[in-house]
């Protein structure tokens, strides 16, 4: 039984599955438990996944194109060398997942949670995020490019060698975040919060920190 057999799911569980070099198009899943999936060199496109649960899934060298997640819980999953194009995450939780060498392009997300996630060598480009949380997340060698954020939260997150390039970070919350050798280039940080944030060898280029709402207690800033 392949995933493609399940074009219309309703309140139905799928067994754990392994996909290898398969491409799934048009999946519409509602209320299922998709935990334990493993995908290798596979693709999922034009999919809508609503009220579903994914735990401990794995994806390597996979392509996710136009994936719409609604009120789903995706936790402790691992993604390696995969690409997310037009991911739309609405009211969904991705807590505790790990992303290595992943690319996110044209992501849209509202009211979703990426708390306690780890990102290594990842790139986020042209996303539009509103009220999304990345609290307690860890970022190594990542790039944010032309991101458009409103009220996106990164409290207690840690950034190592991360570049924010041309990003709109309005009302972003970096409370108690730590930045190591990071770079903000041509970013709009209007009304953002860096309360008790710590900066080590972090540079700001054409980024007006005076527009931030709260820099109280921030350490390591050469204002």
């Amino acid at each position: 039984m392949t995933l493609a057999d399940h074009q219309q799911l309703y309140q139905q569980d799928l067994p754990s599955q392994s996909l290898f070099q398969q491409k799934i198009t048009g999946l519409h899943a509602v209320g299922g438990d998709l935990s334990g999936w493993q995908m290798l060199e596979s693709g999922l496109e034009q999919a809508t996944i609503m009220d579903c649960q994914f735990n401990h899934c794995r994806a390597k060298k996979c392509q996710f194109d136009t994936l719409h997640l609604v009120q789903s819980q995706i936790s402790s999953c691992s993604y390696i060398n995969s690409r997310f194009e037009k991911l739309n995450s609405d009211s969904s939780s991705h807590a505790g997942s790990n992303f290595a060498s992943c690319q996110f392009e044209n992501t849209k997300s509202e009211l979703s949670d990426f708390g306690l996630c780890g990102f290594q060598d990842c790139q986020w480009e042209n996303s539009k995020l509103s009220e999304v949380s990345f609290h307690g997340s860890v970022w190594y060698d990542c790039v944010f490019k032309n991101e458009n954020y409103n009220f996106v939260r990164f409290p207690s997150s840690v950034f190592y060698n991360v570049v924010f390039d041309g990003c709109t970070l309005k009302k972003a919350i970096f409370r108690k975040a730590r930045f190591y050798e990071c770079r903000f280039k041509e970013c709009d940080v209007t009304d953002s919060v860096f309360h008790n944030a710590e900066f080590y060898k972090t540079t700001f280029v054409s980024t007006d920190l005076s527009e931030a709402a709260n820099l109280e207690g921030a350490k390591g800033l050469a204002l």
């Binding site: 949670d113 409290p155 207690s156 008790n196």
Partner: peptide, 21 residues
């Protein structure tokens, strides 16, 4: 435990307990 607050995104008790400043 999943946390569904009155405003903003969802979370978990673990995340809030260990990382909410």
């Amino acid at each position: 435990t999943l946390v569904y607050p009155g405003h903003g995104p969802i979370s978990t008790i673990a995340a809030e307990k260990y990382y909410n400043p």
